[in-house]
Computed example of a mutant assay.
Amino acid sequence: MPIFEAILFAILQGVTELFPISSLGHGVIVPDLFRWQMDRNSEAFLPFMVVLHLGTATALLVYFHRDWIDLFRGFFRASGKPDNPQSRLLWQLAVGTLPAGLLGLLFEKKLRLLFGNTTLVLVFLSVNGVILLVGDRLKRRGGGKPLDALGYGSALRIGFAQALALFPGISRSGSTLVAGLGSGLDYASAARFSFLLATPIILAAGLLEIPKLMHMTGDIPFALIGVSGVISGVCAYLSIWFLMRYFNRHDVEALRPFGWYCLMVGILGLIWKLAK
């Protein structure tokens, strides 16, 4: 893999993993569109992606480290019972993590077969755009509850929404944000829950693959893989910083720009594929 492609892909992964525009979708579309030399079937590509995901997870942990410290303090203070807001939120995150975790273990290998189908990815990206536009309509109908008002049923529904990101082109943060808005949360609270919910899934996806790294060889030097992971993490941190401020400042239609972007890229991409 050429160095500039690895660096650009790391930037792309770091930004699109947390922006509601699908990292998996862009990871398929961009290399195909610009005819990159990278081979997603290469033995070296898996460790490359693992390190990029660990970079993203590290960025999430660093940005929300105070939240996680408070959550576990509250959990141990309540002896594991949902007797305070922090302990209750930690349990809700655990409940919300189950659907994507279980469905990912059961169907990830089958769903990976979709990654090479650029046309299908473009369709899913268009669907993602519609989901985001629907989310803004849900927000205009009301809501605005803080995160403390979230129930366990809503946390589970948001968890099932996160599982939609197993389809390349559907955004993890986008689907969970919309599900949070549908549960009555305001943008900032929905975004906070979405990013906290994404942390264990992204981290686990990387950690589970680490043992395989020791037995793999390929055309990507380990130094380049490490540098790419750092770049992905830095870009992810900057993305979180921007998005949390963005959602705090917008009361309505915060998802609309991302929704129209996904629709535009998806539809124009399909036209381009059909015209080839």
Score class of each variant (00 low, 15 high):
Ser183Arg: 03
Leu243Asp: 06
Leu122Val: 11
Ala254Trp: 01
Gly206Met: 09
Asn41His: 11
Gln13Cys: 12
Ala155Glu: 13
Trp91Phe: 15
Ala155Ser: 15
Trp272Ile: 04
Phe9Ile: 03
Arg88Asn: 12
Phe4Lys: 06
Met1Cys: 04
Ile131Lys: 02
Ile225Lys: 06
Thr16Val: 12
Thr199Ile: 03
Thr118Tyr: 02
Asp70Gly: 11
Val51Trp: 06
Leu114Ser: 07
Ala254Gly: 13
Lys273Leu: 06
Ala223Asn: 12
Gly25Met: 01
Leu164Tyr: 07
Thr56His: 13
His65Arg: 15
Thr217Leu: 03
Leu243Ile: 12
Asp251Thr: 13
Gly169Lys: 06
Leu238Glu: 11
Thr199Val: 12
Ala179Met: 06
Ala191Pro: 00
Val252Glu: 15
Ile21Leu: 09
Phe115Ser: 08
Phe34Val: 08
Leu122Thr: 11
Leu150Asn: 01
His65Asp: 13
Leu263Pro: 03
Asp67Gly: 07
Leu224Val: 13
Glu209Asn: 14
Ile158Trp: 02
Glu17Gln: 11
Leu113Arg: 12
Leu90Gly: 10
Gln162Arg: 03
Leu268Cys: 15
Leu243Gly: 09
Leu54Ser: 08
Ala149Arg: 08
Phe45Lys: 06
Gly143Tyr: 03
Gly116Lys: 06
Arg141Ile: 00
Val227Gln: 02
Tyr187Arg: 15
Leu150Cys: 10
Leu125Cys: 11
Cys235Met: 15
Trp260Met: 12
Leu166Ala: 05
Thr16Glu: 11
Phe9Cys: 05
Phe76Glu: 13
Val51Leu: 12
Leu150Glu: 05
Ala163Met: 02
Ala94Asp: 02
Arg77Val: 06
Asn117Ile: 09
Leu12Ile: 06
Gly159Arg: 06
Val130Asp: 04
Gln162Met: 00
Leu132Ser: 08
Leu103His: 04
Ile29Gly: 04
Arg40Leu: 10
Thr16Arg: 07
Phe258Glu: 09
Ile131Ser: 01
Ile29Phe: 14
Gln86Arg: 14
Leu122Asp: 07
Lys273Ile: 07
Val50Ala: 10
Leu207Ile: 14
Ser189Leu: 07
Leu105Asp: 08
Ala100Ser: 05
Tyr63Arg: 11
Asn41Glu: 14
Leu208Glu: 02
Ser22Glu: 10
Val234Tyr: 09
Pro211Leu: 14
Pro82Arg: 09
Val121Cys: 04
Thr16Phe: 06
Leu156Met: 14
Ala155Cys: 09
Leu106Met: 15
Asp67Gln: 13
His250Ala: 01
Leu93Tyr: 09
Leu54Met: 11
Gly174Tyr: 00
Gly74Lys: 02
Phe167Trp: 10
Asn84His: 04
Thr16Tyr: 10
Gly135Asp: 08
Tyr152Asp: 06
Gln92Asp: 07
Ile225Trp: 02
Phe9Asp: 03
Leu213Ile: 07
Glu43Asp: 15
Ile240Ser: 10
Gly169Val: 14
Ala275His: 13
Asn84Trp: 01
Pro221Met: 13
Leu122Trp: 12
Gly27His: 04
Val230Trp: 03
Pro257Gly: 09
Gly101Trp: 04
Leu150Pro: 08
Ser42Leu: 13
Val121Gln: 08
Asn41Pro: 01
Lys139Pro: 00
Pro99Gly: 02
Phe34Trp: 13
Val265Gln: 03
Leu102Cys: 11
Leu18Phe: 15
Ser126His: 00
Lys110Trp: 15
Lys212Gly: 13
Ala10Thr: 06
Thr58Trp: 12
Gly129His: 03
Gly266Cys: 02
Leu60Trp: 08
Leu71Gln: 02
Lys145Pro: 03
Leu196Cys: 01
